[in-house]
Amino acid sequence: MISLIGVEMRRGLARRSTRGLLAVALLGIAVIGVSIFVTSRATFDTAGGLAEAEADHNRVLADCVGSNGFGGEVRSPGPSLTEACEQAVPPPESFVRDNRFHLTDLWAVDEGDSILHVTAVFLVIGALMGGATFIGGEWRWGTITTLLTWEPRRVRVFLAKAAAALLVTFVLGIVLQALVGLSVLPAALWRGTTAGADAEWFRAASGAVLRASALGAGAAVLGYAVASIGRNTAAALGVAFAYVSVFEALVRALKPGWQRWLMGDNGAVFLTGRQLRTADFERTVLEAAVILAVYLAATLAAGAFVFARREVT
């Protein structure tokens, strides 16, 4: 079994589709690094920055006065409209734009968007595709026949492949996200700040990376299982995306009470480690993980059942 998993991992890594997905991922990471570097500014409290902020402040102030206190929003019981506006509009300093890159944007612990949120979504999509082609390709080339004449215990073959997909995706997920971190490091060092990126933040971010990798690994196995039920990569991907983008969206709209059981929502909780703003249910990361694992196990069992009984012709 171990040697079979090893072979499947090698095979998975050597596949052209895997390498294609990796190339796309690396390209994406390079784009992230470069674009953040280019759009960041090293400092924000320079003379130029202050003058800009002053100008912004004055423009808003003029708007306030010109629009009669933003259409009555700024009321003036005693003092004149101009005075009321001067009080209402924040001081010039607060108009200074912070164009530095904050390393903590990589992973925002408590609130706000993070770079790793976005990359995790792509990781999951890529993993789903990789997992599906992993088995879809075998049916397509008929190589499954050769493999099964070597190891006819089908459940074993099926699980070995699933384990290989899981392990490879998990490790690749960690590596790729580490590369994302590295790609934004120059921006943080020379065009921004590492303020707030202390040991505790690093621990939180590492946890997020592991969870995102686990989510990716789960998605790879899910894609693999669905593709072995459908025996076809494209069909599997179609079903998976239709499920997430149509079925779950419909449930969210029509049966809000069920939302707590959806894969998308639980995936989001698991990844971010936070409660969802868009839903009113409480979930711990562990609960979300268990729910996702149950879905995965059920799909995998269905895949194994179909794979074990399928006629290989």
């Binding site: 080339w141 190589t143 026949t145 050769t146």
Partner: peptide, 11 residues
């Protein structure tokens, strides 16, 4: 065994 066209990875 070989069954019909032997299936191996073309790449």
């Amino acid at each position: 065994s070989i069954v019909e066209t032997p299936a191996l990875f073309p790449g």
